[in-house]
Amino acid sequence: MTSFIKPRISRKSAPKNKIGLTRQDYDGTMSTLCAGCGHDSVTAALARAFFELSIKPHKVAKISGIGCSSKTTSYLLKEAHGANTVHGRMPSFATGAMAANTSLTYFGVSGDGDSLSIGIGQMIHAMRRNANMLYVLENNGVYGLTKGQFSASADIGSVAKKGTVNDQPPIDPCALGLSVGASFIARSFSGDREQLVKLIRAGLMHKGFALIDVISPCVSFNDHKGSTKSYEHTYKYYSKLVHADYIPPAEEIKAAYDVGESMPIVLHDGGEIILRKLDPSYDPSDRSSAFSKITNNNTKEIATGLIYINKNLSDMAEQNNLQERPLNQIPYKELNPGLDNLKEIQKSFR
């Protein structure tokens, strides 16, 4: 995690977003991950999405746990505060941070070890609370930093680099999210930047907990023959269910979708998440059919895209009756009940 400064090459012709920033303004420090690591593509997709949405980098808080995936928050948005917390505990830290200031954009990056083993409890409860954040789970089925042990997302029959075969069933974060009531669940692949960027845009703008499970192959320990999280395997069985993107309020919806297949979801800011069904029989607002689709054991198909969305759940801030003004900006005089009330309170203690 050495913080190498990323060389900055400015091109005058680089396109600018609505707030006058270029894509490079969304970079962070140089990645120290292995060459070809799926996580670097996810980092790039995240930076791209923030750039396209014209979000001020310093109005973002980036939070992670421990592991290869959790290092990546350093590799983008250098002008945003970041917290690289403890293993599996990103959700609780992010939850508290959100409570203190609901006006920032929060995203967490985690991995399959961080989320599905040591931190599974925290991830589940952050989903239950519908904390308003994007949660990117960079899923490679393997522990990278400790050199190649299976993680809880490894498929039955997947072969480790040293030849061991996994015989325990995988935990699917999307199925988990469906069962505990997450309000936005998507799956993507680090090798499909176009789909991923759009899902991230939609996830960032969704009010509530947005989980994106990103298959992100580990080139060093899990990209060989027999692995079910390799680039080759993922490309082979990759299938798209529902395409999703966020369209800001003012922007005209340019993409011409067939009426029967597109499904606009209007958000609180007036923007829309536009869904385009690639499988006409699939309804991403139907929780049970979503569950049955992704847990179908008869196919090796990796269903990607927006799996489920429910925009009607109250988020953590609403559940806690919080104001728009952040807690960390309320002056003390409004927090102090005052001397008269202290006297009044003490009447009950006599």
Binding site: A61, I63, A83, T85, V86, R89, P91, S92, F93, A94, T95, G96, A97, M98, A99, A100, N101, G121, Q122, I124, H125, R129, N320, N321, L322, Q323, L327, N328, I330, E334, L335
Partner: peptide
């Protein structure tokens, strides 16, 4: 508005309670 000028979260365990309080403190509460 009768909105809360405070936030109390009952966590799933003490690990999480400690993480939330730290996250909030880091963010200035």
């Amino acid at each position: 508005t009768n909105e809360n000028l405070y936030c109390i979260i009952q966590a799933e365990d003490e690990l999480s309670a400690a993480g939330m309080a730290m996250g909030a403190a880091w963010n200035g509460a």
